[in-house]
């Protein structure tokens, strides 16, 4: 796997997001390269979702710039949205629509209308053959997750944003999703994901940024972060398994306090 370090698909520069007086994100900067899986890690309320929502164009950020494929998301929101595929933490579709109708809707609004046969083919590929007439709510968590991922990537986007994609999945479904994410990388897509799973970050992310209290406090490859911090007294103090893990580094950097 080669990451093109000279070319980035996403550039977040000096981003700040506020909700009234509360500053959720403060001067956050990072880049995601083509063909890279980039993880955004942080405790609850650290500012991950606000950062992601700013990139997705769902919230108005206070200051800073975000470019996707070289275009400013504020100046050219439709281009940015067309360049991105997004999977939210919880996805909702009209409860009256069945799986085929949902796929027809989203293939249409992403500008790649699909026939019923093509949709059946896609459903077969993801192991959902025979579920065409089912409503989204009638599918299992893993099946819903696969449908959501298909919708997010239906237009072959350059950048894929996944907000805690493996939350609630069993180990088999989680491994299967990791393989899919890695396959996206092999195809040249860039992936930005948020996760609470350090195992996941270590397993699939090429680089990670740890965000806490709205600020990026560390950014590097998982292994480099471990190597850099493995001798820190705080890291050794929280280490439980004899060897330092990414989770130990994360807890040492962000503190032991449970966040809301």
């Amino acid at each position: 796997m080669t990451i093109d370090q000279d070319k980035y698909i996403l550039n977040v520069d000096d981003l700040s997001v506020s909700y009234g007086d509360f500053v959720a994100v403060k001067n956050v900067s990072f880049k995601v390269m083509h063909g890279e899986i980039f993880g955004l890690l942080g405790p609850n309320g650290a500012g991950k979702t606000s950062t992601l929502s700013s990139i997705e164009g769902l919230i108005r950020y206070k200051s800073g710039t975000i470019t996707v494929d070289g275009k400013d998301v504020k100046a050219d929101p439709l281009y940015a949205k067309a360049s991105m595929g997004v999977q939210l933490q919880a996805t909702s579709f009209q409860p009256e629509l069945n799986v085929v109708q949902i796929l027809q809707l989203f293939s249409g609004i992403y500008g790649v209308p699909m026939s019923r046969d093509r949709i059946r083919g896609i459903l077969k590929e993801i192991g959902l053959e025979g579920h065409e007439k089912k409503k989204f709510s009638q599918l299992s968590g893993g099946q819903q997750q696969r449908i959501s991922l298909v919708i997010s990537t239906i237009h072959n986007p350059k950048l894929i944003l996944l907000d805690e994609p493996t939350t609630g999945l069993d180990p088999q479904a989680r491994r299967q999703l990791w393989e899919r994410i890695e396959a996206f990388r092999e195809q040249g897509h860039a992936v930005l994901l948020t996760t609470h799973s350090m195992e996941e970050a270590e397993a699939i992310c090429d680089r990670i940024a740890i965000i806490d209290r709205g600020q990026v406090i560390a950014i590097d490859t998982p292994q480099t972060l471990i190597d850099t911090h493995k001798n820190d007294p705080d890291v050794i103090a929280v280490s439980r398994r004899g060897k330092v893990t990414l989770e130990d580094v994360f807890i040492a950097l962000t503190g032991k306090t449970v966040r809301a």
């Binding site: 769902l58 949205k81 939210l88 909702s92 579709f93 609004i109």
Partner: peptide, 10 residues
């Protein structure tokens, strides 16, 4: 959250 999902699309 149905609108939220639609708004992610172009």
């Amino acid at each position: 959250g149905i609108f939220q999902r639609l708004r992610l699309a172009p």
